[in-house]
């Protein structure tokens, strides 16, 4: 597969790891805040690798811009100085770290046991052969993003080698699923909630009913994956309740924050 993509991945992965370790190790909260911002950048980069461009931007905007600024503001406001290290070695700190590490090991074990490395290896060879074939047929190959995440079987009729698909392939695959939804082959919530009881009709109030046509409209321009349009459509269609609730949440937090932080007059 490609050389650059993996490189960037490892680069930013280690970047994220190191900065997050730095965040919890540094003594001075100011430095922590700054390393955290760097960490958010690494995350943003990873989002891009995962072709979630909109979120990468939002990440930087929201986290980097808003939240970290807030943190820095607070740190500056309370002019926290370098805090002396904890006086004595507390036993429960050790337990905590061990617990954390065990959490990680467990998660890793869970993930690795779910992923069968041979399977991945075969996928890899199969993809490698497809790539060679493609190269021999000299088809027009868009920017190859070799992030060959072994996904489900290739979509039914798509010629594209899903293993080595690039942005274009992702687009087509996504459009493919949208069409499938539209044609009613699979519903959006298909095999998402395994124990979801499909036959129990779940009726949204009419006002919230998604507008049948508009829902699956494939906007003009190809290449929707990762952009804001599908997100915004979903926000107002399927996720309209959470959307409104988030609004309320934000309102509440603003009012709360303001009350708490205001200096008592009396």
């Amino acid at each position: 597969m490609g050389f650059w993509e993996p490189l960037f991945f490892w680069l930013f992965a280690f970047g994220a790891l190191i900065t997050s370790c730095a965040v919890i190790v540094m003594r001075n909260p100011l430095y922590c805040a700054l390393t955290l911002i760097a960490d958010f950048f690494c995350f943003a980069a990873l989002y891009v690798l995962l072709s979630a461009h909109f979120l990468a931007v939002v990440q930087i905007l929201v986290y980097g811009g808003a939240i970290m600024v807030l943190f820095l503001f607070i740190i500056m406001l309370l002019n926290m100085r370098r805090v002396r290290p904890a006086s004595r070695f507390q036993v429960h700190y050790a337990i905590a770290t061990i617990a954390g590490i065990m959490m990680f090991l467990f998660a890793a074990w869970a993930i690795l046991s779910a992923v069968d490395m041979e399977e991945v290896a075969e996928e890899r060879e199969r993809v490698a052969e497809q790539i060679e074939e493609v190269e021999q047929e000299e088809e027009e190959v868009a920017l190859r993003t070799a992030s060959a995440i072994p996904g489900p079987e290739a979509p039914v009729d798509a010629p594209v080698l899903y293993a080595d698909v690039n942005e274009l392939a992702v687009e087509q695959a996504y459009a493919q699923t949208l069409r499938a939804w539209r044609d009613g082959h699979a519903t959006p919530s298909d095999h998402k909630y395994p124990d979801f009881d499909p036959d129990r009709t779940y009726e949204l109030p009419p006002s919230l009913q998604p507008d049948p046509e508009q829902a699956h409209v494939v906007p003009g321009r190809e290449g929707l994956y990762g952009t804001f349009k599908p997100v915004s459509i979903m926000l107002v269609n399927r996720f309209v309740i959470p959307f409104e609730l988030t609004a309320v949440l934000l309102l509440a937090s603003i009012v709360g924050a303001m009350i708490l932080a205001k200096r008592r007059v009396a």
Binding site: H92, I95, A96, A99, G100, M102, M103, F106
Partner: peptide, 15 residues
């Protein structure tokens, strides 16, 4: 924090 540790430990044990 001690509570957090206990929760984590409990979670690990459950897993």
């Amino acid at each position: 924090q001690r509570y957090a540790t206990y929760i984590t430990l409990a979670l690990v044990l459950i897993f």
